[in-house]
Design a protein around this nucleic acid. Sequence first.
RNA 1: GGUCCCAUCGUCUAGCGGUUAGGACAUCGGCCUCUCACGCCGGUAACGCGGGUUCGAUUCCCGCUGGGAUCGCCA
Length: 581
Amino acid sequence: FVLRIEDTDRARSTPENEQIILHELKWLGLTWDEGPDVGGAHGPYRQTERLELYQEFSEKLIAKGAAYRCYCTKEELDAQREALKAKDPKAQFRYPGTCRDRKAPYPDGPFVVRMRAPSSGEITYDDLVFGEVTTPNNTQQDWVLIRQDGIPLYNFGCVVDDITMGITLVARGRDHMINTPIQILLYEALGYPVPKLAHLPMMLAPDGAKLSKRHGAVSVGEYREKGLTPDGLLSYLVRFGWSFGDEEIFTKASLIEKFDWERCSKSDGKFDFKKLSAVAFEHLKREDLTSTADYVEGAARFLEKKGFANVDRALVEKAAPIIRERAQTFVEAADALDYFFREPPAMDEKAVKKFLVPEKASRLGELRDLLAKTPSFTAKEMEAEATAWLAKEGLALKDVAQPARVALTGRTASPGLFEVMEVLGRGADARAARPRGGDHLGRGKRREHGGDLGGAGGSSQRPGRAWPQTPSIWQTAATALGPLPGYVLIAPILWVFFRRTWRKLDVEAHEHQRRRWRPGVGQAACGAVRDHGGGADAAGVLRRRQFYDLHQVVDPGAEALHQIDPQNEWVGGYPEPEELQ
RNA sequence: GGUCCCAUCGUCUAGCGGUUAGGACAUCGGCCUCUCACGCCGGUAACGCGGGUUCGAUUCCCGCUGGGAUCGCCA
């Protein structure tokens, strides 16, 4: 398809915004055949670079009598509009036609070009989604085509471009339906056939209101930062307003194959962040939707964003199978991977206090020694050994699992104990090879204490025993516990946490999105091509005006965002466009 | 207010004259279980209202109500 940048609104169109559009579209896997960056036969692809073309077409219309120069000033018209509204707020202001039949000599001053709109009859078109739509012409007026400064207005610019770019299908948001009759009038005046038209329903905020920055909208980029996959996002977005039986999860390829206009819904919908999360999670979880290679790379990149340098892909791949089903996003995956890359792990104080108590210490020590002896150190083997040992001791796994888990991972929730151990590997060799993400200042403070908190037990432990030369993963546990009787863990462990540089990055990303950008971009469907500021459809895949405006789409609300990433501070809403001007 | 558009569970939707109105997310119970998840089983939950047409309306028609879009020298 053709990617055209509709940048005639200079307040909103900046090179940075254009870059963002290109970048986000590429990230989503939508690639265009022609566009500002790749060139093509119908260039240039920025409207501000096509100004002569609009001039030429407007001259044509003037020559035909279908348009005329209007010398009324904006100030005059605005004043009239104000006056009318003051008298009757519900009144409909329309251009009075002052210059409509003006004859030579023409004044010298600046002028705009207006179309000569019919006041009777009606325009009917056949919408691919909505069917036949009819609008009476008596609601039309002599719209401005070209401003005083020579820059065309949206309705004129896109008609000229669509004609000269050979666009055959217009697919855009339903909010453009009101523009369609005007554009059809222009096609007719110019003598060109009208392309096929398809309008798509709107995505509303969860409260049913129009989506706006006020709702804390976010961009495609922000979802990327949250760690969703492009196909996951695409899958949700396309399925919203379109359906294919009971199927809910699609890949980009299957969307291209299955999409059709007939299955598009006509009614607006409300954005649901939880559903997006669920769909994105499904994509992340399933290997047939996100390959192991992509998963590892994605998770590693987010780990690096957290501050870990040179993340060992092999280790991520080893851990991937056990974290995939519990990380809804790459951000969560990075968090779940944290303790595999940090030695010692970041300890959760409360968990330490609760589980790493002296009476558990001896058991953990025994378990450590037992497991250290297993020949292969695989989860299966360790579990078997542990189970046998526990049975002999008359214990259940749950008696030792939580303390062990906390010692191992620093937290109370993690994948299976033995799986974690297997990934961590035996001893220091594996650990030494691992990049160090954390600091080493966080050793738990232990203080001597007069006695056992938990009463009698434990004094049978051999005092002063040395750890094996090869420090095992259990060393961490024992260190945290206070290895011997007589010692009680009193002070909580103080850990210096990693600076969250990624958070800073995130804030910067938000900053980046504060500006409103919404030049239209191109889209295609079924080989036909066409674009409009706002509507989107690519190879029959994308369809929704807000897709482009995704930053303003989603109103997950701060709450929802926190759910997906509790660590991530939401920076608040965005300014309305007025505030930017 | 004018014009245009829309209307099935809380949400996204299936349905295209006869269905116990289906699925997914969410939610609630249960199972699984070393925690957290995943997974599995089950429950609650919808055709806005009123007229027609028809043997029969969620489905077709009209009206009402409700919602949305738009009314710019923005796109």
